[in-house]
Amino acid sequence: MFVIHSNSSEREVRFLDRRGDEFMVEIQGRGVTATQWVSAFADPKGLARWMEELGANGLPWKGVSSWATLEGEFEISATCTASGAVTFRVTLSGLPGSDEEWRVSAGVGCELGQLAALAAAAHQFFEGSEA
């Protein structure tokens, strides 16, 4: 498991379990709770690489950096202010095309200096031993 904790609230994004190229993501905190198994079959270690690229940033960046599963049931993006405040925007969705389709999106804030530790945790979660 690895977790992105908010530095301004109790909100967090948890990567709870991994089975091959699938993993479980949970958004938890005031006003929001959502959990979804997602498949990264086209790029199972892509999220770890994306987090490592963010973690390599020693300086604030401009624009939005993002990663998503091929089918779009999980999306994550990151922005950074000039002062080093990082915001992750995480979106989970399910049952696409059905009458009961759903989508939950939430932000989680942290600091630029936390990204290297988050990248290491993502690497361990996604590239460590299979669950």
Rank of each mutant, 00 (worst) to 15 (best):
G109H: 11
N7W: 00
K62L: 09
Q124L: 12
R103E: 03
A116W: 02
A121E: 09
P60V: 07
M1P: 13
L115M: 06
V86I: 12
R89D: 08
V90D: 02
A122K: 10
E100Q: 13
S105E: 10
G113F: 05
G128Q: 02
V104W: 00
A34S: 11
S8L: 13
A82N: 07
G46E: 04
E75F: 14
G58R: 13
F15V: 03
A68P: 01
A68K: 14
G46H: 06
D99Q: 15
L54Q: 05
Q28L: 14
R103P: 00
K45F: 15
A122H: 06
A122C: 07
L54K: 08
Q114N: 15
D43H: 12
T81E: 07
T79D: 00
G107M: 06
E52Y: 10
E130P: 13
E12K: 15
F126M: 06
L112P: 01
G97T: 01
M24K: 12
A117N: 05
N7R: 14
G97W: 03
L47W: 09
A78W: 09
F41V: 09
C80S: 10
K45E: 15
A48I: 12
V25W: 00
E52M: 15
G58C: 04
F2M: 06
S8D: 13
E75N: 09
S9D: 04
K45I: 15
I76N: 00
Q124W: 00
S83A: 14
E22H: 06
G109L: 06
H123D: 13
G46Y: 04
P96Y: 04
M1T: 12
R14M: 05
S6D: 15
V108L: 08
F126L: 09
F125N: 01
Q124E: 13
T91H: 01
W37A: 04
Q28G: 01
Q36E: 10
H5V: 01
R14Q: 10
A131H: 07
R103S: 10
S129R: 14
E100C: 09
A121S: 12
Q28C: 11
A40E: 01
W61T: 05
T69V: 06
R103Q: 10
C80Y: 08
V90H: 02
V38C: 14
R18C: 04
L70R: 07
V32Q: 03
I76C: 07
L16W: 00
Q36S: 07
F41C: 07
F41Y: 15
S65I: 03
P60Y: 05
G97D: 00
H5F: 11
E73D: 15
L59N: 06
T81F: 13
W61C: 05
A120W: 02
I27M: 13
Q124P: 00
V3Y: 01
G55A: 10
G94H: 01
G113Q: 08
L47C: 03
A42N: 09
V64A: 06
T87L: 09
Q114M: 14
S105G: 15
S9T: 14
R103K: 15
L59R: 11
L47V: 03
M24V: 15
T91K: 12
W50Q: 12
E73G: 01
G113R: 08
W37R: 11
D21L: 04
E127A: 14
F125R: 01
M1G: 12
W102M: 02
C80A: 06
A131I: 04
F23Q: 04
N57L: 04
D43Y: 10
F126C: 08
F41P: 00
Q114G: 09
S65Y: 05
L16I: 07
M24A: 08
E53A: 14
S9W: 04
L59C: 00
W102L: 03
A78F: 12
